[in-house]
Design a protein around this nucleic acid. Sequence first.
RNA 1: GGUCUCGUGGCCGAGAGGCUUAGGCACCGGUCUGCAAAACCGGUUACAGCGGUUCGAAUCCGCUCGAGACCUCCA
Length: 485
Amino acid sequence: MKQALYIQNSLSGKKEEFKPIHKGFVGMYACGPTVYNYVHLGNCRTFVSFDLVYRYLLHLGYKVRYVRNITDVGHLENDADEGEDKIAKKAKLEQLEPMEIVQKYTLDFHDVLRKFNTLPPSIEPTATGHIIEQIEMIRKIIDNGYAYEINGSVYFDVNKYNESFPYGELSGRKVEELIAGTRDLDGQEEKRSPLDFALWKNASPEHIMKWASPWGIGFPGWHLECSAMSTKYLGEQFDIHGGGMDLKFPHHECEIAQGCSANGKSPVNYWMHGNMLTLNGRKMSKSAGNVVLPNELFSGENLELDKAYHPMVVRFFMMQAHYSSTLDFTSEALNAAEKGFDRLMEAFKTLQSLPAALTSTENTETLIAGFYEAMNDDFNSPVLVARLFEAVKYINSINDKKAGISEKDKESLIGAMKAFIFDVMGLQFKEDQDNSKLNGVMDLVIDLRQDARANKDFATSDKIRDYLSQIGITIKDSKDGASWS
RNA sequence: GGUCUCGUGGCCGAGAGGCUUAGGCACCGGUCUGCAAAACCGGUUACAGCGGUUCGAAUCCGCUCGAGACCUCCA
């Protein structure tokens, strides 16, 4: 099946047909987290968004190399010399070795993303593991004349660069305007222009994380690691680079500048930016302090919420919005997502036990084509979800004997729904698949309850139903017997 | 202050010149049920405001109001 996939490219501002550099292969990079704190739900949204992209590319048959970094060198909190390394700061605070901080929050990150059922990237490189590559890249940039060394630090020369390349093309900024908007910060004397950014910073004696370099003891600048690692694993030019909107400027802009200045060509063909998750209408952000932690959500132990939500409900909630739109987080919206998710998953189960008819009353091919159409249009998962609910309606109608489906169509619909719900959207059933003992027990309970009902002993049957309901099991009676979920 | 984005029904959220009643949730009525739940059928609520372009605008343009993002670390 040949599918034309369109991607909204932040670089051109247009929706473009996706054409990989090497036919059948995709190189994709996404900016990972700085592991100095627990990942919050907003962080997760971006990773789930690019997981969707990754999964759909895989589904289309591409061989994808997906690289997502771990930033384990603390970026400076600001551009001034007094700025403190975030990880080092946290290390002092928690009285831990910086690498203990890194390890602690990396484990948390992996744990949370596993709960969200995101696929692990093909390569997950760390910044500290690529100091040599970063130094090499700096050397290249200096050799090409786009960076200068001063007092053991190396800065990128934005004005020089701007003479040959359009600095600001990604974020739609102009150097003159940027300079006009510059604020005076301390410790900027070393730089030729306030727009210049550090490639390498000289480390003061008390600085904890530092390495030897041709320019002395120091540590790499903010934006360099992504350039160094993407170049190493994906080449000087690759297909897709993703990240949150908030990284567009300056981070991604600097990546382009570093790539162009080191290798003479723009590193990325398709830039994709995921939008923010908002809480009370504001961007969820660590520094702003309005954050929901995934584990609080899963356990229900958060002041804002009155109940727990399954990770898959949260993932489905994210799928109901387009990755490029802001998504507002409220318990009301989550409750709605929970019901919708349950309905979708129940219908999928129902589909498999549906009796086949001679002919179908709906065109399943059109239905399935609609799934692809949605995803081909810049990974439009909310439209995909809407189309899946069309299938849900059809399935339930068949179940109510108001519609029919042929054996052949049933098989293809099962295949397509399975692919889009599980493989592409990355959803899973809430319950463990391995609950054979519980199934046995429930068979007995339902049997006893049916006996009670047959004897019109509704006190007993209702007692069973109410008790089960309290522990989260719903009994559904129908003509063909009861089921539970 | 500069740059940019957005404002859709009770809530979340697609759509982007006519032809989607998008979809989910909520709500109302009906079918089914011992009663519920689920499911099905039907229904209600909409494109921030004001102008303009057009045969036709939620969709394009202008202005007004409102919200947000980036310009400093952030997904």
